[in-house]
Design a protein around this nucleic acid. Structure first.
Lengths: 113, 113
DNA sequence: CTAAAACCTGACATTGACGTCAAGGGCAAG
DNA sequence: CTTGCCCTTGACGTCAATGTCAGGTTTTAG
């Protein structure tokens, strides 16, 4: 598929897809004319990238952490530690959001008309 | 308390506190010399602002929604709707983060050394 | 073959919540 | 009164992901 197809399939803009590639998060084959072509699996890859970005991971962190999904060889202790660290960051973020949600919910109850 | 005290009490920088005031999120009295003074209650107010910012609310949204905590008069249907809308945004964000956490947790299990 | 649609690179613009620096004024201790 | 620290406003810088525009090339439909 070409970049426009991938864009509509994932909801990401073509600009974002090129940016992901520039950051080393997403690979592409090039046609003889230089245009990007992606396998079907790229859809899943991009939605994963979107999830991690939405969770507040930076693209450089994702770059450090994402390859382990496809390349099994680089299973280092450092990577495991990095993953655990990001996981706990996300868990902290979730519990913080839970408290904030409770605050908002309290307001909603209080201000229901 | 002065701005430095409030900063150390909340962990926010003095710059951030001035920014909150500029955005209409935080009030202050001024001394004769023009320096800001805050009541004790400002600590709670600032931590609340921090929570809402961390939850992804913009400062302008917080501006729309925060006064209802202190000023009881402005209980409008519009405000209630706005609150509900932000609440559901935060809830969506939480469940999205849950999925992301599960992905990361799966990776951690897989790459534990 | 030709026109339209999609794509390319490169560069500058944007947004939001701040950091940071400059140049000066306020305020308590000695 | 002076020293030193904290404060003031104003302005410009930052960062990350993305928008947007320009000028040119490739691919596709007819």
């Amino acid at each position: 598929m070409r970049i426009g197809d991938l864009a509509t399939a994932t909801g990401a803009s073509a600009r974002s897809l090129r940016y992901y590639e520039e950051q080393g998060l997403l690979a592409s084959e090039r046609s003889s004319g230089g245009q990007r072509h992606y396998p079907e699996s790229a859809v899943e890859r991009v939605t994963l990238i979107q999830s991690l970005l939405a969770a507040g991971l930076s693209s450089s962190t994702i770059h450090d952490v994402l390859p382990c999904i496809t390349e099994k060889a680089i299973r280092t202790p450092w990577l495991a530690e990095r993953l655990r660290s990001e996981l706990s960051r996300v868990e902290d973020q979730i519990s913080s959001l839970h408290r904030t949600r409770d605050i908002l919910a309290g307001l909603v109850v209080h201000y229901a008309v």
